[in-house]
Write a protein that binds this DNA or RNA. Sequence first.
DNA 1: GATGAATGAGACTTCATTCAT
DNA 2: CATGAATGAAGTCTCATTCAT
Lengths: 217, 217, 217, 217
Amino acid sequence: MSSRDDTSSLPSRPQRRRLPVEERTPQILDAALEEFAARGYAGARMAEVARRAGIAKGLIYHYFPSKTELFQATVRACTRPTFEAAERSFAAHPGSAREVLRTLVDLGYDKAGNDPRDRTLFRLLITEAANVPELAAFYREEVLSRSLGIVRRLLAEGAASGEFRPDLPDAPGYAEVVLAPVLMLPVWQMMLGEQDAPAPEAMRAAHHAMLMAALSR
Amino acid sequence: MSSRDDTSSLPSRPQRRRLPVEERTPQILDAALEEFAARGYAGARMAEVARRAGIAKGLIYHYFPSKTELFQATVRACTRPTFEAAERSFAAHPGSAREVLRTLVDLGYDKAGNDPRDRTLFRLLITEAANVPELAAFYREEVLSRSLGIVRRLLAEGAASGEFRPDLPDAPGYAEVVLAPVLMLPVWQMMLGEQDAPAPEAMRAAHHAMLMAALSR
Amino acid sequence: MSSRDDTSSLPSRPQRRRLPVEERTPQILDAALEEFAARGYAGARMAEVARRAGIAKGLIYHYFPSKTELFQATVRACTRPTFEAAERSFAAHPGSAREVLRTLVDLGYDKAGNDPRDRTLFRLLITEAANVPELAAFYREEVLSRSLGIVRRLLAEGAASGEFRPDLPDAPGYAEVVLAPVLMLPVWQMMLGEQDAPAPEAMRAAHHAMLMAALSR
Amino acid sequence: MSSRDDTSSLPSRPQRRRLPVEERTPQILDAALEEFAARGYAGARMAEVARRAGIAKGLIYHYFPSKTELFQATVRACTRPTFEAAERSFAAHPGSAREVLRTLVDLGYDKAGNDPRDRTLFRLLITEAANVPELAAFYREEVLSRSLGIVRRLLAEGAASGEFRPDLPDAPGYAEVVLAPVLMLPVWQMMLGEQDAPAPEAMRAAHHAMLMAALSR
DNA sequence: GATGAATGAGACTTCATTCAT
DNA sequence: CATGAATGAAGTCTCATTCAT
């Protein structure tokens, strides 16, 4: 019915479509993200990834040599562009350090609280980084270091312009403490589910209030 | 003939000692904690739990009906006493709200940074809560709610005594933001390893500084 | 019928018999020999080995960690006793060097020509030694070197007693040439099948004749 | 647009050159010989044959319908010319039976010991003949029978001329025993590797000595 | 109670073969 | 003719669970 030669009521896609690599690769990565998100690394099944992608099991191995490599590629492919976009948007910062900080925090809560894809990724990163050294390195270098870097630059600029207290940029650990609540929210969401985790909007507002009080001179 | 006095040949005693339930159960739970901590739920092997406990595989099933149940029993058995002890120590709070807050934060960083057993548990809770509903409920009710409760009481007491700003106790999400950095540290440690995670001492100091600045009137 | 609870006409052995290791191991090795002989190393299937042994697939892995190790154990277990028995029987050699040589050659043709188990082993050794270094080493040290050693000792004894020409024991390569026809017969049998290979009896007689003519002074 | 003059970017030309059957066929057979020699029949991979030939996997199936047929074609294509050449060189035998025999033996050890292509073929013939009936028939008819025929003719000529003992030509199995050491050398080389196999030169000399002693009247 | 041999479902992965392009 | 993406059957191996001893 939906395809030529359909003799009955089968799932209707036994058809062998040949796609260019640039289309097939993201198709597989999308399916893999779904599956890894649903079951974690160890629980995910290659057969299920294939089913989600609508292809045969073996084809995955044309594109990725093993489950491990597929997993890393999945996380990398999804995390990097998200984060790079975030960083670009900060490069052209519009106003005072205070405003930029507010924007930064808002964006963090937005990503963590609303974007299901990013939350999924965050969860995978957290639960699997301990088992996959390369993933830990990836998180450290491409996510955490960049985030902390942005915060530190903001603290320095705010101190230079007189908006923030001057002793903060040099206090070790300060950027981590500033950033932590934003990152803790998705951890809670992951552990407790969206409905039982602390309310994102409340945390965002409280976080703003605390930062303004703590950073202003 | 096959009795216990035969000390002749082998150095390893198969032993086959019949132990009462009260001794065997914690022996198994200890071994299970080690194994689950080392490999996560999915990666853990029942045979390895048995080996660590020095018993045969089959014996585990006399005490726990399945891997899942063993896992839940393990987390429950280990988390509850740890946390109850922590709460008891706060009940008898010694001085001003400011001092108690400092003690609270110190204790959090201490547990997270130094006690390997607690860090192990924390890791298991984080990585597996999403898959084991009962674990999530346990965390929410027995760990997170209690912690937040303590913080809220402190904020209220500090506001009442004039030490802290009066608007904080009623701000929703404030306790979460205050607590988050303490909890984020073990998450980072879990993900990155102790040596690559942010420095606990620096975070502790920065956290103190920020809280004092943010909470004081 | 042949077992309790037999509800129909099934192969009648779903029964889980627990055997001591000393009985199960040779049972598996026997089955493995059959399967490896029938299909070669690469073609053999672990599932088929299990079926021949009447056990479940997984049990093989209790006894041998991998297909490769099972293969090596199979060859070792079968070759060593056969060869050691042969060597022992020569230790107590009865008469003149000439007679012993005749006995040796006879035994070689007998083993090669008639014992199906030894022929199977020989075939496996030949076809797989090139791919399994440990097997080649095993053949060199435990089969070829010993065989050549026996021949060399015989040549020396015959020279000492005046039965054989005195220049032979020191000629390098002589023992190899003496031995080669005995070993070539099973190669031909393997390649061509028993019916199309050269006739063992004819070769034995011709080999005797040639050796007597060549070795006598 | 996609034509051959584009030398701009890549150093590897995908080429897609359309070749006549007479060129493509030996190209594939050469690659197949390499691969089968390196891994045996079961271990050989069609993809690797294609890679060695510098073509796509699918193209092999334009020329050979299956792996089995490719294998047979490979052995046939390589063995026949080699052996025919050898036989031609004997047809014009120059001198006495004794000299011809020496030449024959020398050539055998030469082929076996030095020509890597022939040794490769020999190995394939030995290891796979048992599994491929057509290969066994080929070996029997085109290799073994011819070789034995040459030896028998030589024994007869030597007996006729008085150089050799007169009883040999009629002794069944004699030609096999005369020939066996020459053929056993490459078997050993295959099993043990060139460095661990018996020394070809020593065997050649010993073989000469034994034959002269055994055949002379 | 205690053991560990035994089971069997199911996981990852390979590769001969097909076929859309 | 030529390509290499795509298929799917089949293989090795793992491990939670059972049960004869």
